[in-house]
Design a protein around this nucleic acid. Sequence first.
DNA 1: AATTCGGGGTG
DNA 2: CACCCAGAATT
Length: 310
Amino acid sequence: MTASTAEHTGHALLRAAVTSWFDDAARDLPWRAPDRTPWGVLVSEVMLQQTPVVRVEPAWRAWMGRWPRPADLAAAETADVLRAWDRLGYPRRALRLQECARTIVERHDGVVPRAEDDLLALPGIGEYTAAAVRAFAYGRRAVVVDTNVRRVLARAVGGTALPAPSYTAAERALATALAPADDDAAAVWAAASMELGALICTARSPRCDACPVAELCAWRAAGSPPDEHAGRRRTQAWHGTDRQCRGRVMAALRQADGPVDRAVLVEAWVGPAPADRTARRAQLDRAVAGLIEDGLAEQTADGSLTLPAT
DNA sequence: AATTCGGGGTG
DNA sequence: CACCCAGAATT
C-alpha cells in the first residue's frame, strides 16, 4: 500500500467514526433546528465568534425573536442593537452584524447569499463564518475550520497536544483534504468535527475514554505528549486595562436611557482613588476616543456620550 | 505574522 | 490566576 493510499484510508476511517458518533451525540442547538433559517445560522455564527455556546444560546433566542429577518435588524435602532448584544463581548460584532443585515437587504434582496465571495464581502464575515454559513445554512461543501477543528486535527492527525497559536496554510490544506467531496457529507463532517472538539476533544481535559477516534489518534499513539507552545501563549491582561475600561464605558451607555455625562464615566472608572488618578483619566479618554472612532458611541453637543441612534 | 478587540466560566 | 471560548479586521 502506498503512503497516499494509507493516508486516504486513514482519513476515511476518521470521517466515518466521527460522523457516526455525531449521529447521536449532537447537541440540540436552536440554530440547528429543522426550521432554521440562513439568517439565523449567520447570526449564531457571528455571536459564536469567541463567545461560548452556553452564553450565546439565550441571547440568540431573544435576538431572533426580535429581529427574525435581515430586514428587521437593518431597520432597528443601533442603540437597541448594542443593548441587545449586552455582554456577549466585542460589541463591534453587533455593529458589523447590523451592517451585514443592511448590506444583505441592499445588495441581496434581503436573502443571505450562498456564494463564498458574496459572503466574504459582508462585514464581520471571515473565512470561518463564510464556510460555516455555506455548510450549515445551505448544505454545501465548505472547509469549516474553527478552534475545535484545529485542535481535533492537531491531535488526531498531527500528534500534538494543541495547534500552533496561529492558523497555518498546512492546517488549511489538511482540512481541505479531509473534507468529503459530497455536499451533504461535507456539511455533516463540518458539524461533526466541530462537535467532537467541543464535547470530547476539549482543550483542558479531553475525554479520550469516550472518543470515537481514540484508536486512530496520533497524539494518543505518541503517548499524549504535552503542549509544545505551553507558556509561550501570551495571556491577555484584563484588570485595569484599556480593554476593561472600554467595556465599562459601554456597560454604562447600555444601561442609560439617554446620554451619559462624562463626570459619571469618570466616577465609574477613575473613582476617588488619588494614587493613579491622572493615568486613569488618560485611560478613560483613550477608551472614549476609541469607542467614538469605532462607531460604538457618539458625542452630544454638551460633551455627553451616547450610543449611536442609527 | 502580530495586535487589538469583551467578558465570564473553569481547573 | 492562567487559560479558553464555532474569529475578524487591521497593521
